[in-house]
Write a protein that binds this DNA or RNA. Structure first.
Ligand SMILES: [Mn+2]
Ligand SMILES: [Mn+2]
Ligand SMILES: [Mn+2]
Ligand SMILES: [Mn+2]
Lengths: 217, 217
DNA sequence: AAATATTTTTAGACAAGGGTAAAAATATTT
DNA sequence: AAATATTTTTACCCTTGTCTAAAAATATTT
């Protein structure tokens, strides 16, 4: 039995440490989870005790195979629930994270499998992130940040790196949505800004925004 | 802020004590919640401290108006989720209780309102129990247990008093479902059994079963 | 290579929720 | 009205998950 809190830690380690492969620092987890470093040390010990994590004092923590699979199962639930909230209940993509953060901890294999079917086995959540299948497998759409795309070429907005409410609301305000075709028109070295063109208009975005928009070519 | 555990206690007191009006004994709650009496005493004190319950030592506990509304809100969530599980995810009515027991604690007003709309504002859950509205109001379908119905008359199965897995599976096996028209054909005083007639067949049921079937005339 | 700064761990405390065992209060029998 | 039985409460204890403050280890500067 893995507790709600343990699930949150596993997810944090997974995301911070390249799917749990790389060692993650106590402080990094503390910031992500919004807890103190001492609390994180305690929890890490418990995860190691349960063989969900590999931990060497002062050397950071990574996930065992079981830990990784558990993390993926939580992520699967999180992303399926987000998809439900947006596709079925008509939430906007900036409203769903906090609710999914709760729903991801509901314990029932059957529930999540039936939800998956009900949603017609979606492969990506409302933020363009891939949804792991029952076995934890998924394939990420090959895409590049606008930072790494040559001027003149175009692609389809397939995911956003930052899923914070603030960024998603910025995109809503500027009528940028997943699936939109975006062409990179110009790069301005003075302030590192980009000019992009969408179906409806041409606009300038900051480096910070460009960095978070991923296009598939 | 009312915790998950507090919500479960409020619900128990509500159900055991005539919507929280009557004083409920410590032992009765302990049995319902599956906890020890001493734990119940502790929690009751907390609820009284938060002004969710009225408590006099050795005299049992009832709900305050706030406590009652909170209980109804949890019941509303429970029954809406059960409806979702049966109507949208195709669960059978005997499988949903335990999952709803978890889902009822998800915190989001907006979620439950949108779920309500998505389900097209159902008035009753899969067991025939009424679903309170946003304000905690509901009207119970007027119905009578088969025990209290005269031989020869008929009605529509509108709810089941016992929602246990065992009883619901018995009904499934015997092809009895909400909405079925049932006619009470005979009463046998020897063993208090009843003979009933449904669209498809005539069958004999025990007193214990009859007691749990509610018909609206 | 020291000195200093930062990170991580340890030690000790606390609140929530639950349990045991014994004491106190209330109910039921005799 | 006692005696006995049952229920409820109290007094402690335990686990989970968190925190603060201090100690220890590791990193970074000088
Ligand atoms: Mn979570
Ligand atoms: Mn997402
Ligand atoms: Mn519950
Ligand atoms: Mn129900």
């Amino acid at each position: 039995m893995v507790t709600l809190s343990e699930e949150n830690y596993l997810k944090a380690i997974y995301h911070l440490g390249n799917q749990g492969d790389d060692a993650v620092s106590t402080n990094a987890i503390a910031e992500q989870i919004d807890a103190k470093a001492s609390s994180v040390t305690d929890m890490i010990k418990k995860l190691a005790e349960k063989e969900l994590a590999n931990y060497i004092k002062y050397q950071g923590v990574s996930l065992t195979e079981t830990g990784r699979l558990t993390a993926r199962s939580v992520i699967r639930k999180h992303r399926l629930w987000e998809t439900f909230l947006v596709n079925k209940l008509n939430f906007s993509w900036h409203e769903v994270h906090d609710i999914a953060e709760q729903l991801e901890h509901i314990k029932s294999e059957k529930l999540i499998d039936k939800l998956d079917d009900f949603l017609e086995n979606p492969t990506h959540d409302p933020h363009g992130d891939p949804i792991p299948d029952k076995n934890g497998n998924y394939t990420k759409i090959k895409s590049k940040s606008i930072l790494d795309i040559e001027t003149g070429s175009q692609g389809v907005l397939s995911s956003v790196k930052d899923s914070s409410k603030a960024f998603l609301k910025y995109l809503n305000k500027n009528e940028l949505a997943l699936g939109d075709t975006i062409k990179v028109i110009d790069f301005e070295p003075f302030d590192d800004s980009f000019t992009i063109e969408t179906k409806s208009r041409t606009m300038t975005i900051s480096r910070e925004v460009a960095e978070n928009l991923y296009l598939s070519i």
